[in-house]
């Protein structure tokens, strides 16, 4: 146990069980409330990847889509995409 504590002190063991629980709960609770299943979010994610990669160079695995609750109680679809640059012109569809 003290070993775990020592690892944590050095930031070696990643998020704490408490932080994990909170993060996971916030995820499932928002899914339960919005009635938007995770499978639908995954389909949305895959399609976003398809669209964005036509224009930008991206790490497809790192594209992340999730729901966030806004202050007014509505749900925002938030996607995080890291771009490594613009695709060369010839790869791009005509504008």
């Amino acid at each position: 146990m003290s070993n775990t504590w020592f690892n944590r002190l050095l930031g070696r063991s990643g998020p704490t069980p408490r932080a994990c629980a909170k993060e996971r709960l916030l995820g499932v609770v928002i899914e339960d409330r919005s009635a938007i299943p995770a499978s639908v979010l995954e389909l949305v994610r895959l399609e976003i990847v398809e669209v964005v990669k036509k224009y930008l160079i991206i790490d497809e695995q790192a594209v992340d889509v999730k729901l966030e609750k806004d202050d007014d109680g509505t749900y925002a679809l938030v996607s995080h995409v890291v771009s490594r640059g613009v695709r060369k012109k010839e790869g791009m569809p005509a504008l």
Binding site: W5, R8, T16, P17, R18, A21, K22
Partner: peptide, 11 residues
């Protein structure tokens, strides 16, 4: 909770 192993009341 103090050892960061359980959800706190605030969480």
């Amino acid at each position: 909770v103090e050892s960061q192993d359980m959800l706190s009341v605030g969480d």
